[in-house]
Amino acid sequence: MSTGDTRDRVPIEPQSIDAPLSRAAVFLTVVLSDAAGAADQVRSALGDVGGLVRAVGFRDLGGRLSCNVGIGHDVWSAVTGMPMPAQLHAFVSVTGGTYTAPATPGDLFFHIRADRADMCFEFERLLLHALGGAVTVADETIGFRYFDSRDLLGFVDGTENPTGSKMAHWTLVGDDDPPHAGGSYLVVQKYLHALDAWQALSTEVQEQIIGRTKADNVELDDATLPRPSHKGLTTIVDANGEEHDILRDNMPFGRPGQGEFGTYFIGYSKDLWVIEQMLSNMFLGDPVGSYDRILDVSTAVTGGTFFAPANDVLDSFGD
């Protein structure tokens, strides 16, 4: 890593991408309306996101309220007036031989986190009031921490997240795209689980699918498994042998009374291609045909790609 790399010394303030895993979250996707002045109203509201976080968060600083804002390709120019981030494009649907990762509507994405669900609720209420008729809600998912950071399949999630200085290195755009330094690409997907089918599998088979032991979260050697595991397929190594990390902040969600059980995937990265390669490996297989067996019980129902600009950029919208 060169000393000139701005991921070592980001000159501007990034959004709270590195916020600790929270106990509660709201994943909010909205679509820009065709009302006159909608883009201007959105721009103004985004410029005050920091103020809203402070207003709600001050009620309990221990609640650690934060909100990251992602802006999609189709509205980037209209909302920001800035050059397009180098790698930003709309989510590309991935169609495998058996399963598909669909692309669904979404112009703006809000990742709201706190250790108190009521703080997430209050912030979202004020945010949607500020956005008003300029947007319509495409998806609203309420996440929660499940015991010791496990998903509803019973496995610990996010084990391989980068930490310390590596977090900024792998998540924040640097001097390769100077106008967008300190920003991050993010991809979101909502997965619904067939829990009965999953629970019908033996623990040994579940572990082979995930690539880790269930009780103590120990990594398994893919070479010993009958086919590539979820862990193996989502480990991205480039042609030079370097492994590329992303930051996941996935959360479970569900409504047992409605038979709904799921995981909301959210990944941050300085390079969009890394997450896209993960999805390609999962749905197409690596080698092709050896798709991720987690998809036998987990169905992707949404898919969106966004860019989270630095805080300085968001704050400038309010000027």
Rank of each mutant, 00 (worst) to 15 (best):
M1P: 11
S2T: 14
D8V: 12
R9V: 12
P11R: 12
P14T: 10
A19G: 10
A19Q: 05
R23F: 06
A24Q: 13
A25E: 09
V31K: 13
A36P: 10
A38I: 06
V42F: 03
A45D: 04
G62V: 06
R64P: 06
N68D: 11
I71N: 07
S77K: 12
M82T: 02
A90W: 02
V94S: 04
A103T: 08
D107M: 06
R113N: 08
F121H: 15
E122G: 10
E122S: 13
R125Q: 15
G132P: 00
A138F: 01
E140V: 09
I142A: 11
Y146N: 15
Y146Q: 13
S149A: 13
L152V: 11
F155Y: 14
F155G: 06
N161D: 08
G164W: 03
H169Y: 15
T171L: 07
V173N: 05
D175T: 13
D177M: 11
S184P: 05
L186N: 03
L186K: 01
Y191T: 07
D196E: 14
A197E: 13
A197I: 04
W198P: 04
L201I: 06
E204C: 03
I209F: 04
K214S: 08
N217K: 01
K231E: 09
G232P: 00
G232K: 01
L233H: 00
V237P: 03
D238F: 01
A239Q: 08
G241Q: 02
G241I: 07
E242N: 11
H244C: 05
R248K: 08
M251R: 09
P252R: 09
Q258F: 12
T263F: 08
G267C: 11
L272A: 06
D286N: 10
D286E: 03
G289D: 02
V301N: 09
G304N: 06
G304P: 04
G304V: 04
A308Q: 00
D312N: 10
S316A: 06
